[in-house]
């Protein structure tokens, strides 16, 4: 009996080991187009933060023109300002939607625009601060008529 229990334990632990070994590989396999686009733009991945406010209607009737508003908390002084804001889509054929470069002369890190969305999805806003911080926020929208469908 004792012997059996031991064997079971060994089996369990070996299972655990194989799991911990495969998990990072799985995470890598999930690296999708958007993550690739984020890495391509910023070279690293951001941290989610409340300092970005991303406003997008919960229901977008027309995917060809979806209003988006981004506001980043920042004093916008020469020492502390938002350098760059980028918008990403997790469903469009091209995840990178637009990039905005700001300066201390901007006064306020707030932008609104209109984007095309190819279906119900989350839009991600990523901001790079002067001190190197990279922060993000996301917002989901239900798209009734998707853009990028071949008519």
């Amino acid at each position: 009996m004792k012997h059996l229990v031991k064997r079971r334990d060994i089996l369990k632990s070996s299972l655990a080991v194989s799991f911990s070994l495969t998990t990072p590989a799985l995470a890598l396999a999930k690296t999708d187009d958007m993550t690739a686009a984020i890495l391509d733009t910023f070279g690293r991945l951001p941290k989610e933060s409340d300092a970005i406010l991303l406003k997008i209607p919960p229901i977008s009737e027309n995917g060809y023109s979806v209003p988006v508003e981004i506001e980043v908390e920042s004093p916008m002084t020469n020492k502390h300002f938002v350098k760059k804001i980028a918008l990403f889509s997790d469903r469009n054929p091209l995840p990178l939607l637009a990039v905005y470069k700001l300066t201390p002369r901007s006064g306020l890190a707030k932008i609104s625009t209109r984007v095309r969305l190819g279906g119900t999805q989350s839009v991600h806003a990523i901001a790079e601060m002067r001190n190197g911080d990279l922060i993000s926020a996301k917002a989901k929208t239900l798209v009734t008529v998707a853009a990028c469908v071949i008519l």
């Binding site: 939607l97 990039v99 905005y100 470069k101 300066t103 006064g107 625009t113 209109r114 984007v115």
Partner: peptide, 20 residues
């Protein structure tokens, strides 16, 4: 201020931004 547009920007691009 500078913006880089990609194909996901809607037709007749509209932009609001700020300056001091």
């Amino acid at each position: 201020f500078e913006a880089e547009f990609h194909r996901g920007v809607a037709a007749n691009p509209f932009l609001t931004f700020y300056t001091r």
